[in-house]
């Protein structure tokens, strides 16, 4: 059998890589307790990337493998990068439109209106029938109703 694709990794190498991985795991947990501020994320992801690289190069033996396989894998990774980066070009720059709100605009306005109405003290002789817990449980009801799929 030829060497490419059938490279037998020595046990010592495997064990060394394993040792490295365990060390990096301990390191990343330890670093998590150090207040690094804005650096925390890059450091953690950097350590994870190092670990992943070790696994790919040695455990998966990509280092000794056919270059086509390496290219395949690299293109896959590049695509993930593209996906994340380009999506975040949108989400990071929505600017004055603001981020998403936890509720719909309609619900927010309704809540504001409800608060206003309470302040206005509705005269008692007006129509008043709706259940008292309204509108707080609307969200839950709407969710349940849409789950039924009744259309």
């Amino acid at each position: 059998m030829s060497d490419d694709g059938h490279h037998i990794l020595p046990k010592a190498t495997l064990l060394k890589v394993f040792g490295g991985l365990i060390f990096l795991t301990v390191l990343t947990v330890a670093v998590a307790y150090v207040p690094l501020g804005p650096l925390a994320v890059p450091v953690a992801i950097g350590i994870a990337a190092t670990k992943a690289t070790l696994v790919v190069l040695y455990f998966m033996a990509l280092r000794y493998d056919n270059p086509v396989n390496a290219l395949t894998f690299t293109i896959g990774i590049i695509m993930v990068m593209v996906f994340i980066t380009f999506t975040m070009i949108d989400t990071a720059f929505r600017g004055d439109m603001g981020n998403v709100d936890r509720q719909t605009m309609g619900e927010i306005e309704r809540e504001q209106e409800a608060a206003q109405q309470q302040q206005e003290q509705i005269p008692s002789e007006q129509l008043r029938v709706a259940p008292a817990d309204y509108p707080d449980d609307r969200g839950a009801d709407a969710g349940a109703a849409s789950g039924d799929g009744d259309s």
Binding site: M79, V82, F86, I89, D90, T91, A92, F93, R94, G95, M97
Partner: peptide, 17 residues
């Protein structure tokens, strides 16, 4: 793979993208 956002020019994505 780099152009999907052209389906979203008026859908609320950022002007930059």
């Amino acid at each position: 793979f780099l152009v999907w956002g052209h389906h979203m020019f008026v859908s609320g994505q950022s002007v930059v993208s």
